[in-house]
Amino acid sequence: MSLDDVLILNAVSKAYGGRASMIEKAFGRRPKGLQAVREVSFTIRKGEVMGLVGESGCGKSTIARMAAGLLAPTGGEIGRNAAMREQMIFQDPFSSLNPRWRVRDIVAEPIRTHRLRPKKAIDERVAELLRQVGLSPEDGAKFPQAFSGGQRQRISIARALAGEPDFLILDEPTSALDVSVQAQILDLLRGFQAELHLTSLFITHNLPVVRLMADRIGVVYLGELVELAPTETIFHRPRHPYTRLLIDAAPDLDATDRSLHPIPGDLPDPSDPPSGCVFRTRCPFANERCAAERPELRTVETGQVRCHYDLDLSQRAAA
């Protein structure tokens, strides 16, 4: 691991469940379980924002929790830069703050845990953080229930920054918020990112948001990383058919072209994924090879793609 690497995932997998039922025990069968994440590899370098996108249930939160060290992988290794301090911001601003604690204690907690400031400087630091996220120091005396979703997410951000992280993991930090509050939170995060040179892992299913925030994007489908590339490459020259279809599925603001582009078919049952390429059951280009052979994650130009065919999609459509 080089000094510039913050986090390395090497073929990381996570299987959930799998406690054997009576019948399974009696027959000596292994329980089915659910492979939520399968052999995911990527490296996050110092100062970069890495984005992860994908549909609900594809394994984003599972990856985030493993990256944060909150969940142990069942396969592969995670390398962590020991000199780096991590903080995580969660998806749900309603359940992630302890309702019995006052906001000032919530924000002060990482300062106390990591002994970042002398005792008598803590109040001042908490007041400063609350101001930085657009709240007032007086808000510190209130309980989380007194705040709206957007304000709660500001409290989560203040708490994360209180830990003076080098590395921030954000799991859908704006998904529960409306566009207007989302824009304020994104502004705030971008400001801190620029000011504090934070390294982050930014997880969302909102493509415009990840395009705004991330330097590189990983696309996850059914627990697998199917493509990884710099942000603009993902949007302008995606290599994986799923990436292309996912981008097209999000309605844009163009009211003159009213066409909608749902991804054909349904998400397969995650406990019974397709053979070969996981995306083949919905892929317009799939053939026998895709059912028979699982594609390797291959390096192409500036990124990586897990597809047997490395043609540019535009060429493939024309062919």
């Binding site: 909102n206 599925a249 999000a250 582009h261 749902p262």
Partner: peptide, 9 residues
């Protein structure tokens, strides 16, 4: 999410 949303719309 986006993909189910596009189906629903």
């Amino acid at each position: 999410d986006v993909s189910v949303q596009a189906h629903m719309l």
